[in-house]
Structure formats: structure tokens, C-alpha cells
Amino acid sequence: MLTMLADFQSILGIVHESDLFGSFKMMGLGMLGILIVMLLLYLLIMVLSKFGKEKKN
């Protein structure tokens, strides 16, 4: 399937197969990375909230 897709002409110039796959790779890894960071920050806030409450007590 990888070899079926070749470079093709688009509005602004030639679309390279490597660039297209790179953009999809970027989408997958980028969204995964953002999700991981946001989940870590969520856990961080939970820990900080608990730590802040205990300190108050």
C-alpha cells in the first residue's frame, strides 16, 4: 500500500508521499503527546490540591 501512493501535483506544488505520511505521523503522535501531557497535568493538579488541603489542615 505504501508503494501505491506516489508524489502527485496539487494546487501549490508537488505533494511528496514522505511529507503526507509525515503529516499523518505528526497528527497521531502530536495528539497522543498532548493527551499524555494533559493527563499528567490533571494528575498533577489532583496531587497539588490534596497537598494544599493537607497543609491547610
Binding site: Q9, S10, I11, L12, G13, I14, V15, D19, L20, G22, S23, F24, M26, M27, G30, M31
Partner: peptide
């Protein structure tokens, strides 16, 4: 990321 894919498809 949707925009990146579209931009590549447009030839950027």
C-alpha cells in the same frame, strides 16, 4: 493537525 494534513495536500 487536521490543518497540517490539509496544507500538505495543497502542496505546501
Amino acid at each position: 493537525f487536521m490543518t497540517i494534513v490539509l496544507a500538505v495536500l495543497l502542496g505546501f
